[in-house]
Design a binder for these strands. Structure first.
Length: 851
RNA sequence: GCCCAGAUGGCGGAAUUGGUAGACGCGAUGGACUCAAAAUCCAUUGAUGGCAACAUCAUGAGAGUUCGAUUCUCUCUCUGGGCACCA
């Protein structure tokens, strides 16, 4: 018997698949398609650890079974290589980011190849490739040149808006280009604006909210380094994602995604339906408030404005405590470290605007007007009607400042809104997305600014606008992108901000459909054929980032008629994390990282794959245990041993034949499988098929382990007695086929050996080539074979199991009860008792309720 | 604080719509094979009592519904994740 040498076998077949192009996907438009996608990785310098492949193995198993089931499978891989870490790495190692990315991609590819994935590498994409980001820029321009038409509830070209404005607004034509631009900027789906950013002078960079922590005095500092952070207003590019808030929220319902991911997105979008109500005041200014509780309008005791409210100045100048109020606002702004978006949850403060009263439109009551830092300027109208009786925050504020709390009856929200002339509106927590980074390593934004500030988009033929080479990637220290110090760049008037990391990843799944297209981001025919992603596998950390942004872009492309579906990912599955042995996340910093290369070297890729799928449920967090891998390795070895024996037997039979025919082969001349083993085989085929489709890989493997053990036992018995296996090699091949998605190398090796043997005619060697097991037809199970006619059922007395009996599956319940009541071990329990109730659950159990 | 998910042997985990809790794997103990070791195979392995047949108790804690609850309901504890003054 040959030794199981995983290194030899795995290398051999990886080479074979590569040279045979086993996994190459053609656009066969007649064949039914299946698109299995992994979230493409960011190729970091650290390479893959053992946790990364988990999702890829799961999706690979799906890709393989679908291929065998006759689908035309698209299963691509690529790299999301723009972004801060590459730039950081470049600075630290003094190497151009492009070079660093190239190097890291090579490492990644090497690691991928060792694990035996069935990716079609001819479709690889790389977001930093100018041929790729040309289309990222192109999509940006489409978004820039569009607005959201509220009547049609979809995006339309900005030219349509201009037409409308020309017709309806006489003065439009007289406006200067700059003035027009200003107005249009209010509509464009990609627009320029200013925003307060978290500026860290020491790092010379802008930080995201989650990159900031509080130091021991409660002051905001950078997470990295602990340097002070301040606010700074900066020119930015934005994406008007809020235009899609409603559709992004409501379309979630139709998606087959994990419930909690949908929940996270829903909360993030934060839809609330309410009313906008105007309060007249004692000065010549109204205060518009937003409320979801118009029914509490009679309970209003004061009105509060945010310190950043747009009209705050006009109120302050008319108040009798103007100096005090201005001082309060200044302090409030300083206090809010992370911008008004997420003011720290400290104690609420406020100040009354003395001398100004607001009038409750419901009953004409005069109430005081306050400024309070618990009101956010960026949500609703930036002003709130306070009802301490029904709102906890208003109550807290009232208690602190000794404001009255009154109990008034509730009224109908709709009626009262109408009565006071309010409007029904929907508000969202979600903000427009900032679409600019003051960084080098990102897609250049394809726009020109002229001296007067007029913006012109680049023409399509000018794309891609390639990143220029620079001498240094360090932040400029002024907050501007390193591109601002490239003379030629600035001379052309090119935008110096680059796109954020999520730009390239918002549409890459479309590029895989037609990755080499030079005329379009993808050809229409391909887009219509591959349509959308049937299964998307990735981590749940992208719930509010990538998964939301790509839905947004996709909806935009759908509105404009570029893609055939309004949602990109029909089904989504999240793989769970693999923690280290010590229960912590795998990280260089804890020194607990396990490299898959080492596992592959010692145990083999097939073992790694089986183990990672066997560890636990696919979507749950599990801890790595190198100790436990051995179980998966033993299983593979068992499969190997069985295979070697099948091969041996086949050889014996074929030797005894005088004139074997090539096509018939030895196996068909063997005895059919024994009943029980055949039955088990078919049950296993069913279980594995169904489990893979539901991504219950752990139980699928468990079922195959049971089958393998049974086969080996049977082999042992029959070989010892009569040298005649009871499992035909045809049946054994079916087992190999269902194992193939999990352990593609061993399965292929044994499959090829079994197939090529029958083709050897004495000294006449037939070319030992057979089509791959991975392109063979997935075995079917025989429903008739699976049914158990005799079943063991439990007999319970008052819910406690007292005996077990064997009955035929279609026995009538009365007969079953008779059998049970005459059973010796049951008799002793029912003697002297009366049977109150008899329950028979078909094929499962009998329960007798006795007094 | 609010929202979501989860808790089962020494460990990872199984358990169709409520129906024999602990499949499968790791580890452990004993045995076979071997000069020996490795590998492999066999047996045992939730707890307690008993020589045993067997009995009792067990799915984070407590209650409830039910003939029957790991599964459904309520309360609580802990763990993981999300949001964090969104009116």
């Amino acid at each position: 018997m040959k030794e199981y040498n995983h290194n030899k076998i795995e290398k051999k077949w990886q080479k074979f698949w590569d040279s045979e192009e086993t996994y190459k996907t053609e656009n066969k438009f007649k064949k039914k398609k299946y698109y299995v996608l992994d979230m493409f990785p960011y190729p970091s310098g650290a390479g893959l650890h053992v946790g990364h492949p988990r999702g890829y193995i799961g999706s690979d198993i799906l890709a393989r079974i679908r291929r065998m089931q006759g689908f035309n499978v698209l299963h691509p891989m690529g790299y999301d290589a723009f972004g801060l870490p590459a730039e950081q790495y470049a600075i630290e190692h003094n190497i151009h980011p492009r070079k660093a990315v190239e190097k890291n991609i090579k490492t990644f590819r090497g690691q991928f190849d060792k694990i035996g994935f069935s990716f079609d590498w001819s479709r690889q994409v790389n977001t930093t490739d100018p041929e790729y980001y040309k289309w990222t820029q192109w999509i940006f321009l489409q978004i820039y040149n569009s607005y959201y038409d509220l009547e049609q509830n979809k995006a339309r070209p900005i030219s349509e808006l201009i037409n409308k404005l020309e017709k309806t607004h006489r003065g439009w034509k007289e406006l200067s280009e700059i003035e027009k631009e200003k107005i249009l900027m209010e509509y464009r789906l990609a627009f320029e604006g200013f925003s307060e950013v978290n500026w860290c002078p020491k790092l010379g960079t802008v930080l995201a909210n989650d990159e900031i922590v509080d130091d021991k005095d409660g002051n905001p500092v950078s997470e990295r380094g602990g340097y002070p952070v301040e606010k700074k207003s900066m020119r930015q590019w934005f994406m008007r994602i809020t235009a899609y808030a409603d559709r992004l929220a409501s379309d979630l319902e139709g998606l087959n995604w994990p419930q909690h991911i949908k929940e996270i997105q829903k909360n993030w979008i934060g839809v609330s339906h309410g009313s906008e109500i105007e309060f007249k005041t004692s000065i010549d200014r109204n205060i518009k408030v937003f409320t979801t509780r118009a029914d509490t309008l009679f309970g209003v005791t004061y009105v509060v404005l945010s310190p950043e409210h747009t009209n705050i100045g006009e109120f302050i100048v008319q108040s009798s405590n103007m100096a005090e109020a201005s001082k309060y606002i200044r302090e409030a702004k300083e206090k809010s470290s992370k911008g008004d978006l997420t003011r720290d949850d400290k104690e609420k403060t406020g100040i009354e605007l003395k001398g100004i009263k607001a009038i409750n439109p419901a009953n004409g009551e005069e109430v005081p007007v306050w400024i309070g830092d618990y009101v956010l300027a960026s949500y609703g109208t930036g002003a709130v009607m306070a009802v301490p009786q029904h709102d906890e925050r208003d109550r807290e504020f009232s208690l602190k400042y000794n404001l009255p709390i009154i109990d008034r009856p509730l009224v109908d929200a709709k009626e009262i809104t109408k009565k006071v002339g309010g409007k029904f509106v929907t508000k969202y927590k979600m903000r427009d997305a900032i679409f600019a980074r003051q960084r080098y390593w990102g897609e250049p934004i394809p726009l020109r600014h002229d001296k007067n500030g007029l913006i012109t988009p680049l023409k399509e033929k000018e794309l891609p606008l390639k990143l220029p080479n620079v001498t240094g990637y360090e932040p400029t220290g002024t907050g501007e992108s390193p591109l601002a110090s490239v003379k030629a760049w600035v001379k052309e008037g090119y935008e110096t901000n680059t796109m954020p990391g999520w730009a390239g990843s918002s549409w890459y799944f479309l590029r895989y459909m037609d990755p080499k297209n030079k005329k379009n981001f993808a050809d229409k025919k391909n887009l219509e054929y591959w349509k959308d992603v049937d299964l998307y596998v990735g981590g749940q950390e992208h719930a509010t980032g990538h998964l939301l942004y790509s839905r947004f872009w996709h909806k935009f492309l759908f509105d404009m008629g570029y893609v055939p579906t309004s949602e990109p990912f029909k089904n989504l599955k999240n793989q769970g994390l693999i923690m280290a042995n010590d229960g912590r996340k795998m990280s260089k910093r804890w020194g607990n990282v396990i490299n898959p290369d080492e596992i592959v070297k010692t145990y083999g890729a097939d073992t790694l794959r089986v183990y990672e799928m066997f560890m636990g449920p696919f979507d749950e967090t599990v801890a790595w245990s190198t100790e436990s891998i051995i179980g998966s390795r033993r299983f593979i070895e068992k499969v190997w041993r069985i295979g070697e024996k099948v091969l041996e037997n086949q050889k014996n039979v074929s030797l005894s034949l005088t004139l074997p025919r090539v096509r018939v082969g030895a196996h068909t001349l063997q005895k059919p499988s024994s009943d029980s083993l055949l039955k088990l085989l078919h049950k296993t085929i069913k279980k594995v098929t169904e489990d893979i489709e539901a991504m219950r890989f752990n139980t699928a493997i468990s079922a195959m382990m049971i089958l393998a053990s049974e086969i080996e036992k049977e082999q042992g018995r029959t070989l010892d007695l009569q040298k005649d296996p009871t499992l035909s090699s045809e049946d054994y091949k079916k087992f190999l086929q269902i194992l193939a998605p999990f352990a593609p190398h061993v399965a292929e090796d044994l499959w090829q050996n079994l197939n090529s043997q029958g083709r050897t005619l004495g000294s006449l060697k037939v070319r030992p080539f057979h089509s791959s097991i991975h392109l063979s037809k997935w075995p079917e199970w025989d429903e008739k074979l699976i049914i158990d006619e005799e079943v063991k059922i439990a007999v319970q007395i008052n819910g406690k199991v007292r005996a077990e009996i064997e009955i035929s599956i279609d026995m009538k319940d009365t007969d079953v009860f008779t059998l049970v009541e005459n059973n010796e071990s049951i008799k002793k329990w029912i003697d002297g008792h009366t049977i109150i109730k008899k329950i028979y659950v078909k094929g499962r159990l009998v329960n007798l309720v006795i007094s």
